[in-house]
């Protein structure tokens, strides 16, 4: 599947060095992240060393080299959210889904990340799960959102 997809993507490029970032973006859009073998293929296609592809992919925050969970939980740590208790909320969610910031659960259910501002400071503190924003968060509300109920959600911490 990946091979076919790559072929399709590569078909619209010439295979030059300056196409590296657009190709990485397009691949990630389709796969959700940049698997190692795919980066090797991209290196071959663009004629850029593998180490450099990896370097570029790790430089930009937009690229991920690990798959994401189904639910991407983003806790806002902007100034407004911070003073209204974002650290406590982050802590609560960490406990609930057994993940630390930046981690993805092994069953690929959750990814936990922090962001600098979601853009709705009036609702601080807020979190975002995929595209849904939840504002005026409290640790209790967070507890309700993430049961961590042993249904396979959360579980072991991903490494």
């Amino acid at each position: 599947m990946e091979d076919e997809l790559l072929e399709q993507i590569f078909a619209s490029y010439e295979g030059t060095r300056n196409e590296l970032v657009p190709i990485l973006q397009e691949v990630q859009e389709n796969l959700g992240y940049l698997p190692e073998e795919v980066m090797q293929d991209i290196a071959r296609f663009t004629g850029v060393p593998e180490s450099h592809v990896y370097s570029v992919a790790s430089f930009y925050a937009q690229f991920r080299t690990l798959p994401l969970g189904k639910k991407r939980v983003a806790v806002c740590r902007g100034t407004a959210c911070h003073i209204r208790g974002a650290p406590q909320i982050l802590h609560e969610i960490e406990e609930r889904i057994h993940l630390r910031e930046g981690e993805t659960s092994e069953d690929l259910e959750y990814t936990l990340e922090t962001v600098a501002c979601i853009g709705c400071c009036a609702l601080a503190p807020c979190i975002r799960v995929n595209k849904d924003v939840a504002g005026e968060m409290t640790p209790e509300k967070a507890k309700g959102l993430f049961h961590g109920d042993g249904n396979g959600n959360g579980g072991d911490r991903a490494g």
Partner: peptide, 20 residues
Amino acid sequence: TNVLDFMGRGVDSKVVTAGD
């Protein structure tokens, strides 16, 4: 040989091989 390159950015950069 192109083995080494930077990973990440800023003070957290690290010189690594592809895939560290």
